[in-house]
Write a protein that binds this DNA or RNA. Structure first.
Lengths: 156, 156
DNA sequence: TGTGAAATCTTCTGATA
DNA sequence: TATCAGAAGATTTCACA
């Protein structure tokens, strides 16, 4: 639960810097500086401020899973028997590499997970041989993403 | 639908390079080179190959939304009246900045979306005043993420 | 696929307006 | 918060094993 105490004020220049870097983390600071019209040192200083504030949570290379043959994305709602088994269930899910996200949620299920598989057969295998085998898992509901239309970050 | 024709072969060195950069996109190539024990030029060459293959889909700065006061993450299943209204519904969802993901899915709903809001009140507002107002939306089911336990990319 | 070397550009820091 | 300037380091390309 990373959070910060700093009374963060981000102005329009901070936003422009962040928008550049949210699109391409490797964009040189000097290039952004030339675009915005201030010095590289100023951007450097602002980025340090933003980092200290905790707003900058890091940077990532993004892979296209299709190139590796991963074409089936699904969300799975999981019903657990007892509240007791939750942390163990999460620990078991963490060991399954196909599980990319895991949320405790309000509503019908105890847990909602996002899984990425090569194809439907692979998804079936993960469901039947891995997820259903976890102690405490009583029932699951699967929603396959037929097409992802939006994928973005918080707008700043 | 980005995809590629290249017959991609990634070896152990490619994987090590990618693992470094998936964790921190701004890690200098030369530093990775020293870690792995090959020259910077070789890494440079491999990265170009990986980029041409389409596997590298870019890089992103990651923000911590909590710092900006966004603490409520939710998934919302949407029932649409007619299949006809789907593209219009997606177009309308795209205009709502709180909507970060949108999937056509199998199962009960037509669409599953992920929304990020400041708090429950903000979420209520987005639900009642924005999402429910979209033509064709008949009913929604909301699942608030109480705690996200896993958040990662495809393991390579 | 790999390397070293050279040119160019970037990052980072410190002094200062 | 901004600037400039300099040192250290990174990127990129090329000729070649």
């Amino acid at each position: 639960m990373k959070s910060s105490n700093s009374n963060l004020k981000i102005d329009g220049i901070d936003k422009r810097i962040l928008r550049f870097l949210m699109e391409d983390a490797r964009r040189p600071i000097l290039e952004i500086a030339r675009n915005i019209g201030i010095s590289g040192a100023a951007i450097h200083q602002r980025l340090r401020k933003l980092e200290n504030s905790g707003l900058l949570a890091g940077s990532k290379f993004v892979l296209n899973p299709r190139i590796l043959g991963y074409t089936t994305l699904a969300y799975i709602g999981i019903f657990l028997d007892r509240a007791m088994s939750n942390p163990q269930a999460v620990a078991a899910l963490e060991k399954i590499p196909e599980v990319l996200e895991c949320h405790y949620t309000t509503g019908n299920w105890s847990i909602l997970i996002k899984v990425l598989c090569k194809d439907n057969e692979h998804l079936m295998h993960v469901l039947n041989k891995k997820i259903q085998q976890i102690e405490g898992v009583s029932r699951t509901e699967t929603f396959i993403s037929l097409d992802q239309q939006i994928d973005r970050q918080l707008k700043i």
